[in-house]
């Protein structure tokens, strides 16, 4: 179906978990719940820091190796963000439930796929960060992420932000980059054929999307700005989502 261009998010959607978020962008819809800090099991207990447990659950079928791989990537990135040293011997549990992912109309998909699905990574990172914020887990910084594909069209290479499954299939390489709110590179995963120069270009594009310093522009200027760089402003989006949630929560004051 139609992929929405602007990201959408809702915080605190699940009443029984400590924090939760629902995020949809580029055809992906993910719901996350965060519980923590809670009691850790003996095997997960670290003497000096909290254990970050990430569970990725696909919309259909049971999770396999590719979900485990996504979990390990997320776990190592999120452990960098969360102040794990503040909660020794405890557990911070993040469950990410994929609700919807865009389908390729030109192939009939198999249920169990071993191949890596990098394009879902930005949605997972964004949802996890929003849910952590909603749960009030202390963090060093927030993070924003984006997926970029390089396709060759009529001899010239083209950079596609938030590629569709069809574009990934026909393109040459896919890259996922995540940046912290301080502008540091948090995660860089690439798949396919690419040169160092191409990667540099991808890096600059991703940085422009994820780390644009929030401009004090309004209305039309912002719209034009979005079109010029060819992507949404993720950091501003994260900020405005949190701001609207805080305003709604403090409505009674």
């Amino acid at each position: 179906m139609t992929a929405t261009t602007a990201p959408e998010a809702a915080l605190g959607v699940l009443p029984r978990s400590d924090g939760s978020a629902k995020y949809s962008h580029a055809g992906y819809t993910v719901t996350a719940s965060v519980n923590g800090p809670i009691e850790a099991q003996r095997r997960d207990e670290h003497a000096y820091e909290a254990h970050v447990d990430v569970v990725v659950r696909p919309a259909a079928g049971v999770g396999g190796t590719r979900e485990r791989h996504l979990e390990s990537l997320l776990q190592s990135s999120l452990s960098q963000l969360i102040l794990v040293k503040n909660f020794p011997r405890s557990l911070i549990q993040i469950v990410l439930q994929v609700e919807d992912s865009p389908e390729n109309d030109y192939v009939n998909t198999k249920l169990v796929q071993a191949s890596l699905n990098l394009a879902i990574m930005p949605a997972l990172v964004q949802t996890a960060v929003l849910a952590l914020l909603s749960a009030g887990v202390p963090m060093r910084a927030t993070a924003t992420a984006t997926a970029i594909a390089i396709a060759r069209q009529d001899g010239a290479q083209r950079i596609i932000v938030d590629p569709s499954p069809r574009e990934i299939e026909t393109g040459r390489s896919v890259h996922v980059l995540a940046f912290t709110s301080h502008g540091g590179l948090l995660l860089a995963e690439s798949e396919g054929d690419f040169t160092v120069r191409e990667w540099d270009e991808v890096y600059e594009t991703a940085r422009a999307i994820c780390c644009r310093s929030a401009p004090a522009k309004d209305g039309m200027a912002m719209l034009l700005d979005d079109e010029a760089t060819g992507g949404p402003d993720m950091r501003h989006f994260l900020r405005s989502t949190m701001e609207s949630k805080v305003v709604a929560d403090l409505h009674w004051k």
Partner: peptide
């Protein structure tokens, strides 16, 4: 297939 995840309640395990 019904699988209750820790999202339902932390008491459920994967």
């Amino acid at each position: 297939a019904t699988e209750l995840s820790p999202m339902t309640s932390p008491a459920f395990e994967v």
